[in-house]
Design a protein around this nucleic acid. Sequence first.
DNA 1: CATAACTGTAACAAGTATAGTTACAAATCA
DNA 2: TGATTTGTAACTATACTTGTTACAGTTATG
Lengths: 140, 140
Amino acid sequence: MAANSQFSIAVHVLAMVAGKSDERVKSEYLAKSVNTNPVVIRRLLCSLQEAKLVVSHVGACGGTALARKPEEIKLSEVYKAVSRGEVFALHPNKPNEDCPVGKNIEAILCGLQKEIDKTIECKLGEYTLRDVIEMVAHPA
Amino acid sequence: MAANSQFSIAVHVLAMVAGKSDERVKSEYLAKSVNTNPVVIRRLLCSLQEAKLVVSHVGACGGTALARKPEEIKLSEVYKAVSRGEVFALHPNKPNEDCPVGKNIEAILCGLQKEIDKTIECKLGEYTLRDVIEMVAHPA
DNA sequence: CATAACTGTAACAAGTATAGTTACAAATCA
DNA sequence: TGATTTGTAACTATACTTGTTACAGTTATG
C-alpha cells in the first residue's frame, strides 16, 4: 500500500479511547479491534501523545486516555500527528539544472505541494473526533 | 518515500513537451531533464496517453506531443491520470466486527477519503499546464 | 526494401518503506 | 514483591517503487 494507513488507524483508535472516557484503554484491547499487533498501536499512540492528543500511562493499570474532549480534537490535528508523507512526492532525483524546466520545476512543485497540504488540513479541520463518534453511533 | 512522485514527474514532463509544441519529444530527452531512465518516462507517458493528455508516436521520428493546448490541461486531470494511491489508506486488515467502532469505522473513513480526494481534485483543478509553464518562465 | 530510430512492454534487480513480531527494560500499582 | 503495562529496539517478511536490460513491433527515410 503506497499511502499510509496511520491516519485511519489513529481515527479508529481515538474513537475507541473516546468511547471509554472513564478508564485507561490498553494497547492490547485496541489492537484487537483494529486487528493488528499491540506494538503497532503503541507506536501510533506515541505519535498521538507527542501531538498532545492522548496521554498514556505506564505500569499496572496503565493505558491511554484522551488529552482533551473529543469535540476539541480536530481530524486535521490527527492527520498532522501521524502522516509523514505528502499527497505527492517530489522526484527524489535532482532534475537537470541545464534545462530551464528542470531548473525551476522543483520550486513550483514544492509550492503546489504546500498548497495542497494546506487544503487537506483545512478540510480535515472541519471535523472533530466528536463527529466521528457520532457517525459511528448513528451510521448513515 | 510513501507518496508517489509520478505526479511531479508528470508535470515536469508535460511542461517539457509543451515547450516543444512544434515537434515530437523523445523519451530519452525527457529522461535527461528528469534525470531518470527513458523507460520510466515511457511508462508514465502511457498513463498520460490513456488519459488523453498526450499522443505518442512509435517509430523513427516518433515521440510525444500534447493532445490538447496547455491551457486545456488541468492539473487535476494529470493527478487523476497518474496517482494510484489515496491521501490516506484504509487499514488493510479487516477491523473486528464484534466491536461497534470496528464495525462502522471503515465506511466512515472511506467516505472521508472520498471527500478529501474531491477536495484535492478541486484544488488542482484551479491550475492548468499553462500556469505551470508561466511559472517556469517567470519564477517568483 | 533495408536500415535506423522510436515506443511499448516484459522481466528482473535493487532499494526502500511498512507492518508485524519478539523481547525486554522501566514504571507503576496493589 | 509481583503482576501489569508502556516504550522501544531489533529483526523479519512483505510489498511497492524505481531503475535497468532486452527486445518486438512500428515508422520515416535514403
